[in-house]
Computed example of a mutant assay.
Amino acid sequence: MTRADLGADRLPCGASVDSLLEQVADGAPPSDPQHQRDCPHCRAAVHELRGLWEPVRALAAAEVAVPPDLVTKVMLQVRALARDGWHTVIAGPLGSTRIATWVVAALARSAAGRVPGVALTLGRAGPVTAPATGALGTGASPTGRRRRDARGVGVAGANVVIILDVVAAYGHDLNLLGDAVRAAVIRHVQALTGLTVLEVNVTMVDVVEGGATAGTPETF
């Protein structure tokens, strides 16, 4: 199996897993820097791919023979990124646990919504450059509602990237509020899922008059 075999595999945002692997393996710049900067799916996948490809890179630099099945095993794991693009998969000795992206998103919004000073949490829509959903791979494809529920969250392996838009209650230090939201989301998601939260990017999109209590977490 070669990297070219992955050409048809795509993440939920439509990005090619093959292109991301080429970027990681060859040290190439992103083909679409703006998309990758704003896309939680790509950011999580690139981090996961770096970990998957590291054994190949390390052995290629050493004066030893690379095990003949190493690249094949790595490529099978890479292919799984597209197949499980809407789920994180945690393998254990007795089986595996799959956690849907929209479940992670719900946990993140719930944690953010309970932070004093947060009036509303909004799941960030995907980058405007993302291909149409018809370009996705053949993995399990959720309904439109589930896609909306999963906005702002990307998963790859056991790694998660979260993007949240927050409406703040007037009178709060927005920098400190962003830090509090980030800490709450990381703590809550990691405690309930065991996943590794790589990033929580918070954008304050509005300020409203009102009390310091949190509102009901919602999405748009």
Rank of each mutant, 00 (worst) to 15 (best):
H47W: 05
A44M: 00
A25K: 00
P33I: 09
H35G: 01
H47M: 00
Q36D: 15
L21M: 12
G27Q: 11
P29E: 04
R43E: 00
H47Q: 00
A28N: 11
C39A: 12
V24P: 01
L49T: 05
P40I: 05
Q23M: 15
G51I: 00
D32I: 11
P40T: 07
V24R: 06
Q23E: 15
A28P: 09
P33T: 06
Q36Y: 06
P33Q: 06
L49F: 06
D32F: 11
P40V: 07
P33D: 05
D38A: 14
C39N: 04
G51D: 05
R37V: 13
V46D: 00
P29L: 08
C42G: 12
G27P: 11
H35Q: 07
P29N: 05
Q34C: 12
E22R: 15
C39Y: 02
E22Y: 10
V46T: 09
G27W: 12
R37C: 11
R37N: 12
H35L: 10
P29Y: 08
G27K: 09
C39V: 09
R37T: 14
R37K: 12
H47A: 02
E22Q: 15
L49N: 01
A45I: 05
G27T: 13
P29I: 09
P29V: 09
P29R: 03
D32W: 10
A45M: 01
H47Y: 04
H47F: 06
D26W: 12
H35N: 04
H35K: 06
E22S: 14
H47E: 03
V46G: 03
A28L: 15
Q36L: 12
H35S: 06
A44G: 02
Q23L: 15
L21K: 01
G27E: 09
C39R: 03
R43F: 02
E48C: 09
C39I: 05
H41I: 07
P33A: 08
A28W: 11
A44D: 00
P29T: 07
D26N: 13
A44S: 08
V24F: 06
G27N: 11
A25F: 03
R43I: 03
P29S: 06
P33C: 08
L49Y: 03
G27H: 12
E22W: 07
